[in-house]
Design a protein around this nucleic acid. Sequence first.
DNA 1: GGTTAGCACTCAACAAAATAGAGTGCTAAT
DNA 2: ATTAGCACTCTATTTTGTTGAGTGCTAACC
Lengths: 344, 344
Amino acid sequence: MDLDARKLGILKAIIDEYIMSASPVGSRAISKHEEFNLSSATIRNEMADLEELGYLEQPHTSAGRVPSDKAYRLYVDQMMQRAALSDDEIKLIRAHMSARLDEVESVMKQTAQALSAVTNYTAMVMPPMLAANRLRHIQLVPLREGRALVVIVTTTGFARDAIIRVPEDIRTGELERISRLLTERYYDCRMDHIGEMIAKEMSGELYERRAFLCSVMEAVERKMAPDSPNVQLSGTTNMLHYPEYSDVNKAKTFLAAVEGRNMLYEMLKRASKLEFTITIGNENEDEMFKDCSIVTATYQVGDEPLGSFGIIGPTRMNYGKVISVLEYMRRSLSEMLSADQDDD
Amino acid sequence: MDLDARKLGILKAIIDEYIMSASPVGSRAISKHEEFNLSSATIRNEMADLEELGYLEQPHTSAGRVPSDKAYRLYVDQMMQRAALSDDEIKLIRAHMSARLDEVESVMKQTAQALSAVTNYTAMVMPPMLAANRLRHIQLVPLREGRALVVIVTTTGFARDAIIRVPEDIRTGELERISRLLTERYYDCRMDHIGEMIAKEMSGELYERRAFLCSVMEAVERKMAPDSPNVQLSGTTNMLHYPEYSDVNKAKTFLAAVEGRNMLYEMLKRASKLEFTITIGNENEDEMFKDCSIVTATYQVGDEPLGSFGIIGPTRMNYGKVISVLEYMRRSLSEMLSADQDDD
DNA sequence: GGTTAGCACTCAACAAAATAGAGTGCTAAT
DNA sequence: ATTAGCACTCTATTTTGTTGAGTGCTAACC
């Protein structure tokens, strides 16, 4: 007994139906599909086979069938068709993204909002990893005694700042000189290489201040790396619409898992190595997400992946739509970041 | 019939009991309090009176009584005693605040987390309004054609940046000169006065660039103002622990209201004019929060209020504890911001 | 007068029993 | 290979009964 075309068709019909309705699909419902033109009894036999093959599950005898994770995997890999975005959906996304986008953080926020609004699932967006960006400007600003603010600007217009300690023997004037020297020397260098380069620096004024400069770069690097609390979340409560979460406890568990953000951050970081990922139910390592599916995409400038973003929903998720939306967003986000970041 | 001492005592007992148990309080439960030494029948009579006076409500005949918003108001104004923080609670707060606090945003985040962890309600923290801060340094950094990044640092060590448009006729060198001029001229001026001052500027190089400088200051001012998405939220899911929200729909409504943040932001902004505010149930203008109570406090540097933060919980909230916690946080936050913001 | 015991009454909450309906698996006929 | 038919299973829903906490009122009590 193997998966012939008819079984595949029936399986797809069941999955499509279940994604819509969220309740077990019976043989009668499928037998009504005209393209099969089979009686419910025949469908029943096929369903029994599909169950034996591990693609369907029965919540209890006398209930319809529910697709297994294995079935969703097959569906995603082979049978699913992408759902092109409707004009309304594109309009909805545009509406969310139309506000001023002069700051990366707000782009991330709006992206998350747009994603959750179109899909009705939970969206997460990881801010760009700036390691591959290049230095444009570095400025040390003296504050009160023994403290200074370091501001870094990259060629793509991202700025980060951090408060640092300044050794006693550095006078105010020198900070300005160091700023100029650093900017000059490391202009257009990859951010993640500068620290190393300074450590190796062998000559001139910079050499003498090496220890201080290393502490500066350490602070900067800490700020360049996106960290878990910076993951933008939106639509966490969307999940409460779905019958899967009509039980308050399930909802609580989900929301708590998501609120922590750490897991999500780890997942997104891992996912940023691939253009797209789809992880279904049990494929998720994390116990909390065993009955969720997570779809992610990566955004980039040129060939350099900057970060990733994704959707969390029930395994019974509208994969076709979600993937289309992510694809659309991936493109527009990448465009937005590599082209202008206008201020109005 | 008026509120004599005995009625007041009974009312307080009922409120205290209801805050603990969340279920309607019956006459027998109160008659067991030794300090009254009255039979349940007498209590029943008193309860009937209290109901007539509007302090108690009955979910249905044959259920106990539940305090009304009016009762909570009386309780908060006159009968409540503050609950001093236990050592454990202080330890818990410290644990949340001990991580590196080199960035204001992370202080806000941690404050929110600490608040929600100690109180088990939902916490919100509004970032500081920097209007009253004074300028330390301003730097214009050229990016690609026609764009620059402006970075502002205040005496208290806050930094903000924004991308701005630069007119064609300004050469790169001039940006540097303008930076120096601005820093020199407006050093130690209140942030919210600089824009005005520039507009009035009548002489020298700055006069010629007035239009450009105004656009710079406009961008800066936009960034200085905290906005609704920057309100830090924590413990939104805490509410799901309480029986008030065991119904998924109630939970959904609450979470949706809170996720928007706009309302919260508006409330916090209004509240930042007062040291403390307590708003109970119906006193909340917003329909969504008609069965919540909101307690806020303001943090400041010197006499200047910077922003405020607060707790949202069921009207049946442990007011004494919440107020103590907010008082503690208000003090430590104000200290933290006016003293050092160390980087380690 | 205030206080209290006593009692009939109310009502939500829970549990047990009855019913309906959707769906299955199997068998025998086509 | 397909299908009609039927007995069977099991959940979900409705119905009915039961319990217990709590009330309001009255009449007795101090």
